[in-house]
Computed example of a mutant assay.
Amino acid sequence: MAPKYKLTYFKASVGRGELVRLIFAAAGVEFEDVRLEREEWRLLKETSPMGQLPMLEVGGQVICQSGAIFRYAAKETGLSGAAGWEEAQVDMFVSGMEDLTMKMYGVYFERDEAKKEEKKTALASFVPNFLGNYEKLCGSDGHLVGTSLTYADLAFFNGIDDILKKRPDALEKYPKLTKVVEDVKANKGVATYIAERPETLL
């Protein structure tokens, strides 16, 4: 009997919880998708294992820490890459996306306007180098690693999707990365999920 998954995260279409949703969607795995408003989370926070989201419940047991959840979900769904070197490469790309995400969050959540502008400038300088490195390291089959979809591809799509909404030309100099995004969007489960996911401000 297949395990039942319950994912709890904010009511947002970006961020760490969204990657878990994409992993399950790409693999065609059903899961309970609990989306919390900020006020709902404040009431629930004290009962969570580490006081943070996302949380994944499997058979009555709960884990948190997004990296642990990513790896667990990817292994369970066959999206973590072949064991050994390929799996390490997948984790490398996913960890790199965290660097980009943290810089983007730094801009978004900064309230001091002067500091926000400084962070925007730093991000604008960081992104081309980041994408250039990923383009060099990317495989030639429309996947960051290997010849089939892994959660590295999903992590890249999840992190770059918001940029592409604002800058549709952001990947025009990066044909291999463009193919990664196209292949993720072509996945039947991902395409269905994106078409049906709730509208959110984020």
Rank of each mutant, 00 (worst) to 15 (best):
V29W: 03
E30Q: 13
F31I: 07
E32K: 08
D33H: 09
V34E: 12
R35A: 05
R38D: 11
E40K: 02
W41Q: 01
W41G: 05
R42M: 13
K45I: 07
K45G: 03
T47F: 12
T47W: 08
P49S: 01
M50N: 13
M50P: 04
G51P: 12
L53E: 06
M55E: 15
M55Y: 10
L56V: 06
E57H: 04
G59Y: 05
G60H: 03
Q61T: 15
V62D: 10
I63P: 04
I63Y: 03
I69A: 12
I69N: 05
F70A: 12
F70I: 08
R71V: 09
R71T: 12
Y72V: 08
Y72H: 13
A74C: 08
K75M: 12
E76V: 13
T77N: 14
T77R: 00
G78S: 02
G84H: 07
W85Y: 15
W85K: 13
A88Q: 10
Q89H: 09
Q89V: 03
V90Y: 07
D91K: 10
M92I: 12
F93R: 01
F93V: 06
F93W: 04
L100V: 08
T101K: 01
K103A: 05
Y105V: 15
Y108F: 14
Y108K: 14
E110N: 07
R111G: 15
E113F: 11
A114S: 15
A114F: 01
A114I: 12
E118M: 11
K120H: 06
T121S: 14
A122W: 01
A124D: 13
A124I: 05
S125K: 12
V127K: 00
L131M: 09
L131N: 04
L131K: 02
G132M: 10
G132K: 11
Y134E: 05
E135A: 05
E135H: 09
K136R: 12
K136S: 07
D141M: 15
D141C: 06
V145A: 11
S148Y: 01
L149E: 03
Y151N: 00
A155C: 08
F157V: 12
F157Y: 13
G159F: 01
